[in-house]
């Protein structure tokens, strides 16, 4: 197990050098997306033959930010500072498994290199990590004030009025954001391993 500082955007070669258990610190631009954002992307970008003209601008911006980029499963507590700029007050990860039905396609279409969340994801996302060169990064759930301290700046927000504060796409600049690789691009998932190990221990108690 090793430690790495990763500058976003991240190359495929770098991502493929990471293994489950490695600790990383992220630097650069990260975009949040959770439940409603995933449904929006599926319905708006992936389902139809063409993207509706009114949604093209946000698609182009996400495509630019996520090419080699990082998504964060997070619905933050935000506030405005004295100058009216948004800041993250409290911003830990949300449970990722709810995005399992969507994430393969999101990784494929946008070229994401990393998804940050908590609780891990399933076999489809693990396959996307292998197929396209990505990792799942686990942040500490509930450690929200601490994690917000690594979010240095809110660069923008999309769909806040439609989806609400927790569900919007927040574009943020992070410095030294800490996470652990729990699913890598080699088909290894810590979550799968622990599920099986704990299942054997459960059987012994029954």
């Amino acid at each position: 197990m090793a430690s790495y500082d990763l500058q976003i955007p991240i190359s495929e070669e770098t991502i493929r050098s990471l293994h489950v258990g490695d600790q990383v610190r992220l630097y650069g631009t990260v975009v949040t997306a959770r439940d409603a954002a995933h449904k929006y992307m599926k319905d708006t970008f992936f389902k139809g033959a063409a993207i509706p003209p009114a949604e093209q601008a946000i698609y182009d911006e996400l495509a630019r930010l996520w090419k080699g980029g990082v998504m964060y499963h997070c619905g933050p507590v935000v506030a405005k500072d004295d100058e009216g700029r948004w800041k993250f007050v409290s911003a830990g990860p949300t449970t990722s498994t709810r995005e399992e039905p969507y994430e393969y396609e999101v990784i494929q279409r946008f070229g994401l290199r990393a998804v940050i969340g908590k609780g891990g994801m399933g076999p489809k996302t693990l396959a996307a990590c292998q197929d396209y060169g990505a990792v799942y990064l686990h942040a500490v759930g509930g450690a929200a004030t601490l994690i917000a301290s690594y979010v240095k700046e809110v660069l923008g927000v999309y769909k806040k009025d439609e989806l609400g504060v927790p569900e919007a796409f927040w574009v943020v600049r992070v410095e030294g954001f800490p996470a652990v690789v729990t699913m890598d691009s080699h088909g290894v998932s810590l979550h799968e391993k622990l599920y099986e190990e704990s299942r054997a221990r459960l059987a012994a108690l029954m």
Binding site: P76, V89, G92, T94, G141, G142, A144, T145, S149, P166
Partner: peptide, 28 residues
């Protein structure tokens, strides 16, 4: 261990949240 590192983050977060009066977890 990874478990102990997680507890370190959790406990540091508890201290910071109390000191800054900010939500311990963003999901209130």
């Amino acid at each position: 261990s990874a478990a102990q590192t997680a507890f370190d983050s959790i406990l540091e977060n508890v201290r910071l949240s109390r000191a800054h009066s900010t939500p311990i977890c963003q999901d209130t």
